[in-house]
Amino acid sequence: MNERKVYPTYFAAGALFLYVILYVFPGIIGIGYAFTDWSVYSKELHYIGFDNFATVFSSNYNYTRYITNTLTFTVVTTVMKNILGIGLALMLTKRIRFLNFHRAVMYVPSVLSALIVGMIFRSILNPKVGLLNVTLRAVGLDGLTMQWLTDSKIAFRSVMAVDIWKGMGYIMTIFIAGIMSISPMYFEAADIDGANSWQRFRYITLPMLSPTLAVTTVLNVIYGLKVFDMVYALTNGGPGYATEVLYTGVYKEFGLGRYAIGTALSSIMFVFMLVVGYFMIRLLTRNEESLA
């Protein structure tokens, strides 16, 4: 049977075409535009070398802060979602009542739009009438009430916390699938050897979950670096630049008509993700190598 004839490559042409024109091509020409003075006012473009990148990395502006904030967000949410995700998965693979109900409820925030979750939490985190502060006052913990989204010291933590709240159920679901795929034989053997529950977790569950952990980490990192919705809906980068991440920064530059800076910021991310992304994709597709 002739593979090429039976499975004509042009079947892939439609997907490839759309993907290249609307996804890859803008990324590549974006790098080109990053070396120009492109703005909403410019009639023609001029090559200005690395000026835009010099601006981005200069200490006179806040752009480096966007980048460090993005990285902080990525690391913190990835670590927390993994820890909480494993914790929840361990709990929801035990014999407890309403197991499926609990699992479904934990997952619900993941299917909601980040924009809507952001709006709901703008109400909950409102310093005066928000549910969180009201509850804290009601139980006498007045000292813990805070200006969750407007105090520049804690606003970013609040944003990350809401994002963790939204995303941990998704990570939990993946870990549950991971835990269920561990052969019960290991646990039976451990029981015979008299292992306690911590030892079972430390020497069986955790090592067996390491491939799953690698995947959830990849997914969290991809999400974290590209985050926009949650920050936009909760604080829109404020107060000041306290919660500004790369993509809210790009959107602001776009709004101000400073296209060249916007595309320079995007291009830094593009090149970074291309390199990191290649290894991430190899990890995600590793199961297929044996199939192909």
């Binding site: 990324g27 916007g262 291009s267 994709i281």
Partner: peptide, 25 residues
């Protein structure tokens, strides 16, 4: 070639969108 095309497309899972130059396109 087909393996390459596949990896090339799947790389899009991680790729960020450049909204600014996408507007141009």
């Amino acid at each position: 070639l087909h393996r390459f095309i596949y990896v090339f497309i799947v790389l899009g899972i991680t790729m960020p969108i450049n909204f600014v130059s996408l507007m141009k396109v």
